[in-house]
Design a protein around this nucleic acid. Structure first.
Lengths: 313, 313
DNA sequence: CTACCTCTGTCTAATTTTTGTCGAATTTTT
DNA sequence: AAAAATTCGACAAAAATTAGACAGAGGTAG
């Protein structure tokens, strides 16, 4: 019934090293495990759960000494609330507006500093909320990067670096929501030749947040592949991001082919800074152009709720 | 009807050595097999099942002395609740385990099931440890994907999906170690034309684990960009992954140019399934070919400790 | 800006307990 | 006779314990 765990098992389950588990006990009394006759620590299931919570929260930047006085339910709330519950600890910095945050993010990108970029995004999450970051800030950031790149103020490696760092950030912090089994599927990617994946990354995070079961494919997929992935997974939406180049005849052709391959049940959404060149093609294939991410988000929610997705195997 | 097994058979079915089975009986009374008139141990099917459970659980860090007092249903519950495994009963060679995990991962990839893929990776982390997963399993998985893709058994979208899912997984669970300020820098990416980033992802995770400050650039960067990123960040190592195509003359040229652009202080490591085509170029540019990831890992640790990295802003 | 301080995690060393492996002598099975 | 199991004791390796030292990050006061 109440099995007790040795420190090794606890270490494996919580991701904390045995050293840290002991030192937390000694310094802060984080948990007080039972002891065997020979002084081995034996942890209850509750101990393990608490340590797991502490582990998650310290990884997000909370300090262990502040965490320890809290009860388990408080820790849980903190974790779920994304840290919004408790006042920011002793930050005397002036509140940054969206523009300042974007500037900071650009600076971090220029310096290849993932640490600074993460800090900036954390700050932005607090200031603007998840939807503010996804729907507005990151989008503007992305456009800005595009402009600077075109102007030669930013290198491709810096752009790639930022994409990768933001991708990792979103994977880590964006709610790792497990989509319900009834969630409709959405395939995200960029078409062939489109190497910039940040737009797709943002859309994927947004869709996950809207309760969709997202299948993320990454950049540069030919139309057969996109169509195959949609059909194989019975997806009801395909979201594409087009950023550069913005006038690729091969891409227009590819899109036309995509329209032929794709069953009519799959709605196509396309986003990008300036889709004028592809507009006629997109209209012909009945794709919807995303110009506003919050509208995209709303649409996804509506689609999900209207449940127009008869999912079968 | 109740067939009884001799100790050898039990040993093979549970993966435990005959020695261990006996000593567990003697010290802890793990099971009490029937005996023949001449004192041979004869194990029932239930005995075998219990030993198999114990074997699985000890492999995960539970200690045998704690386990023995539990009943079979309790052991089962522990196995299911504590780990994330469904676990086929009683199949146990370590080699087979790794193969089975890879098979599972391939199946998840084919089905575009990130849930299954994550579960499989969690399981693998427990069974093989982080370095086992990074240095062996994922590498073999990657090769297998390459083969299947070449054979037409897997689509590009499936390959992309797996890359993205594994990338997210590693971002989430691999310890988001914050490198110390004195950590030497390493730039990771794939050269121009190389769209498959999984190899680079694995190297990046490995390097982070070895205490390096990793700057991840993602796929397909021209040599100027790679060189620029290295110099801009005062990196001491550049790690490249080359997977497909394996005979691209443009890439060979690009590598030569890279050698010219890169300062001599930057060591170059290159990994890939079969680098014969580029070998002469790589040797000429004094790059080191990675054929064994655990050796790569060791080398990185050594380099870091020998501390030949005068870092400046 | 520097010098100090605290917080936190890592690491080492010496010791003890737990656990797995081995060899030798003996008996049974093939 | 060779192969397989048995028991027993010895031993080696792994894991856990304590205590203390140490280093990096970040904050604070001068």
């Amino acid at each position: 019934m109440d099995y007790l765990h040795n420190i090794k098992a606890v270490s494996m389950r919580t991701g904390l090293s045995a050293h840290v588990i002991r030192i937390w006990e000694k310094r802060y009394g984080a948990v007080t495990p039972a002891r065997t006759a020979s002084a081995r620590r034996m942890y209850s299931e509750e101990d393990v759960a608490r340590l797991a919570l502490l582990s998650q929260l310290t990884q997000r930047g909370f300090s262990i000494s502040n965490l320890v006085p809290l009860s388990d339910p408080e820790l849980t709330r903190l974790l779920e609330g994304g840290g919004l519950v408790v006042a920011a600890p002793t930050s005397t910095e002036p509140l940054l507006d969206e523009d300042a945050l974007i500037d900071q993010a650009l600076k971090a990108t220029r310096n290849f500093s993932s640490k600074d970029l993460v800090r900036c995004l954390d700050e932005a999450m607090l200031q603007l909320g998840a939807s503010g970051v996804l729907e507005r800030m990151l989008l503007r950031f992305l456009r800005k990067i595009g402009e600077m790149w075109a102007a030669g103020d930013l290198t491709a490696s810096q752009e790639h670096f930022a994409s990768a760092a933001i991708r990792d950030y979103l994977a880590q912090r964006a709610q790792s929501m497990i989509p319900s089994t009834s969630a409709p599927r959405l395939v995200v990617g960029t078409p062939r030749g489109q190497l910039h994946e940040l737009g797709a990354v943002i859309s994927a995070a947004l869709a996950r947040k809207a309760g969709w079961d997202v299948i993320y494919l990454g950049p540069s997929l030919p139309s057969e592949e996109l169509a195959h992935a949609c059909m194989r997974n019975n997806a009801s939406v395909l979201a594409l991001s087009i950023i550069y180049p913005l006038d690729d005849p091969a891409l227009a052709e590819d899109l036309q082919q995509l329209a032929k391959l794709l069953p009519a049940t799959v709605k196509v959404f396309v986003g990008g800074p300036n889709l004028a060149y592809y507009e006629s093609t997109l209209i012909a294939m009945n794709a919807r152009i995303i110009s506003d991410l919050s509208a995209f988000s709303t649409t996804l929610r509506e689609l999900r709720e209207s449940g127009s997705a008869p999912n079968l195997t």
